[in-house]
Write a protein that binds this DNA or RNA. Structure first.
Length: 119
DNA sequence: AGGATGACAGTGT
DNA sequence: AACACTGCCATCC
């Protein structure tokens, strides 16, 4: 089986939509691309992304908020530098919470999205 | 053909 | 917080 070009492009689009100064996890990106539970595909799609696209690949971190390249590797330091350059701060090895995707709160889980029309 | 390998994640301890 | 284990799936020997 190969990774359908269609999937790859949806992933690229989602990554392109991550605003400056914020980060998003592989899993979250996969979900938003309509590929739930397939976080690994995000990494693969990113790996084969042409440089010319100018994707903000550095805004993609793992679920723990940490950079997935090995510590001390070139890619790791590059990613960290790019993030810090756009104002992202770290707490230890993880991106500070203020830059991560907002966790769904209990109210929303129980009551559903606020956009639902009131009776 | 089949096992190892990842730019991962969820759950359990 | 750090492991260990399992699910995941395209790629690469």
């Amino acid at each position: 089986m190969s990774l359908p070009e269609e999937h790859v492009e949806r992933i690229w689009r989602v990554v392109a939509s991550i605003p400056r100064g914020r980060v998003e996890s592989y899993g979250s990106i996969a979900r938003r691309a309509g590929l739930p539970r397939r976080a690994r595909l995000v990494g693969q799609a990113l790996r084969q992304a042409p440089e010319a696209l100018g994707l903000p690949w550095h805004r993609v971190v793992n679920a723990a908020g940490r950079i997935s390249f090995p510590e001390g590797s070139r890619m790791h330091s590059l990613q960290r530098r790019l993030l810090e350059e756009e104002g992202v701060r770290f707490r230890g090895r993880a991106v500070a919470r203020e830059h991560r995707d907002a966790p769904p709160d209990l109210d929303e889980l129980l009551w559903g999205p606020p956009s639902r029309p009131a009776r």
